[in-house]
């Protein structure tokens, strides 16, 4: 029973992390059709910014988190302004300059954080402890489930619901969807496409910040994880179907489950985890390139 309980908890925690990153990719992809390879770095930058304000500047954790979200949204806009905007109107399928520009932003972010904050691994106090005073780890059939992990899982679900509501129930959300559907038509309908695209980067940045403050108490903040987190989140997004909210959720949690299952049934699996994940990635690209929920592109003739 302990094994099954541990498997479920590990799946939920790992899946939540991956779903959050996949979500960030989706937010940008849906409006621009590009992958923001700086997304993993944005999570880490947001974590460092929050840490800096809380630990170095002595701000209360609530203000630090809120300011971290705002600054991370700004980071998202800056990434858009320097990596995407200068490219002008382009077809992401044929002009692949955005791969280099977004990845360059990753490197720039790392260098700037190292120069002005630190590159040493840091952590943040659990929000569960700060806001609700929860410190006690619950044992579920012998598997520990601490409040920080519970907050990560619950927080992820709340973010997903909130974003889904934003997309489906608000005018802003409709504008996002309109741009995703057809930029030209959206523009003709009076939607400021650049503003919407910048908004999607800002939203992805804000989501990254929330992810960072949920993840930092568990795993810490460091740039070594940024690349790996970014790649695995990207695989989760592809697995579920790029551009699909449901896809990000399913892709993230499915990958989380696979990782946990491997570790549970095969002790030596940790050495080969990357092999299995990237193998799965290649298989998806070969046999179902649109993922589970992605829609195949139909070219009208």
């Amino acid at each position: 029973m302990t094994t099954i309980s541990q498997l479920i908890i590990s799946s939920l925690v790992t899946g939540s992390v991956l779903a959050l990153v996949a979500f960030g990719y989706n937010l940008v992809y849906s409006t621009t059709r590009i992958i923001n390879f700086a997304q993993g770095a944005t999570v880490v930058v947001a974590g460092y910014l929050t840490w800096y304000m809380n630990v170095k500047q002595g701000w209360p954790i609530l203000w630090s988190v809120l300011m971290g979200i705002v600054l991370s949204a700004l980071v998202g806009i800056v990434v858009w302004a320097i990596a995407i905007l200068p490219l002008g109107q382009f077809d992401p399928a044929t002009n692949i300059g955005w791969i280099l520009t977004t990845f360059s932003c990753f490197i720039i972010a790392q260098t700037l954080v190292g120069r002005f904050i630190t590159l040493e691994a840091q952590t943040l106090p659990p929000l569960s402890e700060n806001f609700l005073g929860l410190t006690k780890t619950t044992q579920i059939f012998g598997a520990p489930f601490d409040p920080a992990r519970a907050f990560l899982v619950i927080g992820t679900i709340i973010i997903m619901i909130a974003l889904e509501l934003l997309y489906s129930k608000t005018i802003t959300g409709r504008a996002f969807r309109a741009v995703a559907e057809d930029r030209m038509a959206a523009s003709l309908m009076g939607i400021n496409v650049n503003m919407v695209v910048a908004g999607s980067f800002a939203l992805a940045g804000a989501t990254a910040a929330i992810g960072a403050v949920l993840l930092a108490p568990i795993q810490g903040i460091n740039f070594i994880s940024a690349l790996l987190l970014g790649i695995q989140g990207f695989i989760a997004a592809v697995l579920g179907g790029l551009g699909s909210t449901k896809g990000a959720i399913v892709g993230g949690y499915l990958m989380g489950f696979l990782k946990a299952l491997l570790l549970t049934i095969a002790p030596e699996a940790a050495s080969y985890e990357q092999l299995v994940i990237f193998g799965l990635f290649i298989a998806v690209l070969l046999f179902r390139p649109t993922g589970f929920f992605g829609e195949p592109a139909v070219e009208k003739v």
């Binding site: 302990t2 094994t3 541990q6 498997l7 908890i9 590990s10 925690v13 790992t14 992390v17 012998g142 598997a143 520990p144 993840l215 568990i218 795993q219 460091n222 070594i224 994880s225 790996l228 987190l229 990782k259 946990a260 570790l263 549970t264 002790p267 030596e268 940790a270 050495s271 985890e273 990357q274």
Partner: peptide, 17 residues
């Protein structure tokens, strides 16, 4: 003997063993 990946979020299965 157990191994883990760099920056592993979850180490529950290894610690249980």
């Amino acid at each position: 003997t157990e191994v883990f990946q760099l920056n592993a979020t979850e180490l529950g299965p290894q610690l249980q063993r």
